[in-house]
């Protein structure tokens, strides 16, 4: 299974790698909440948020291109969700006609706001998940009293994503070994069938893996070799993070 697709930076030696998973989870949640709640007229704060993620990325000692690569893979989803926003008026909106289309100013602002916030939130999530062992992250969630069912779902999602990659690779190999030349539409039909087969195959394999996990005593709890250990450096990092994040936010709101 190709775990290195996903988490080959989880075992680093940077300060960010050494932070307690609970601290990282807290930082991520707090950061995302701050980003989501920031209105457009406080747009200066977005530079602060960008500064924070860049500092953390620098601290992680992982190449910035690695994070950007992951971000680029996820960004199309945000774009697809928000791409129609500029074409809908928001209250009394100023419209501009481009050919037969009307674009609204407030719509464009909303589109930008959604994209900036989503990219910042994703950047932070990628930073945290890249530099933390998944099982330790789940252990941190367990300590935060996240419902066991939610933790079990995430842990299965994590294990089964590699199965999915595995199965896709096998199917592509079988397809390419018998594929000569097909018109685009026929090729699409083949891919559509492959997706259906992939679903059934991964479902069955997922069930077999669950049986193997269950027979080795798995009962939905996360057990790790290293217990979480909150250190003095974690408290210091938390304090610095809160000062960096909360200070300018309060200042920006008081000045408005």
């Amino acid at each position: 299974m190709r775990h290195e697709f996903f988490d080959h930076h989880r075992e680093g030696n940077s300060p960010l790698h050494h932070f307690d998973p609970r601290l990282k989870l807290f930082m991520m949640l707090f950061f995302i909440a701050a980003v989501v709640m920031t209105p457009l007229d406080k747009n200066i704060l977005f530079f602060l948020y960008l500064g924070i993620v860049l500092i953390l990325a620098f601290m992680s000692q992982v190449s910035l291109f690695h994070f950007l690569g992951k971000l680029l893979k996820l960004y199309p989803m945000i774009f697809l969700i928000s791409m129609f926003v500029p074409f809908f008026p928001d209250g009394e909106d100023i419209s501009h006609r481009i050919g037969f289309l009307s674009i609204y100013e407030n719509g464009v602002q909303k589109f930008l706001l959604i994209n900036i916030k989503a990219v910042l939130a994703l950047f932070m999530s990628i930073l945290i998940t890249t530099t933390t062992d998944m099982m330790l992250l789940l252990k941190g969630m367990e300590k935060f009293r996240v419902p066991k069912l939610a933790i079990a779902i995430i842990s299965f999602m994590y294990r089964f994503i590699f199965l999915l990659i595995d199965e896709v690779e096998r199917m592509m190999l079988a397809f390419q070994s018998r594929y000569f030349r097909l018109p685009v539409l026929e090729r699409l039909a083949v891919f559509a069938n492959m997706i259906a087969v992939l679903f059934i195959r991964t479902f069955e394999r997922g069930e077999r893996i669950y049986l193997a996990m269950e027979s080795r005593g798995f009962r939905g709890e996360v057990h790790t070799l290293t217990e979480l250990n909150w250190k003095k450096t974690d408290s210091t990092a938390l304090l610095i993070f809160l000062i960096l994040l909360i200070g300018p936010v309060i200042f920006a709101f008081l000045n408005s």
Binding site: M1, H3, D7, R159, L163, D166, R208, L211, A212, M213
Partner: peptide, 13 residues
Amino acid sequence: IVFQNPDDQLFCP
């Protein structure tokens, strides 16, 4: 139990 297919038994990084 050791299952027939080792890929079903090995699921960790």
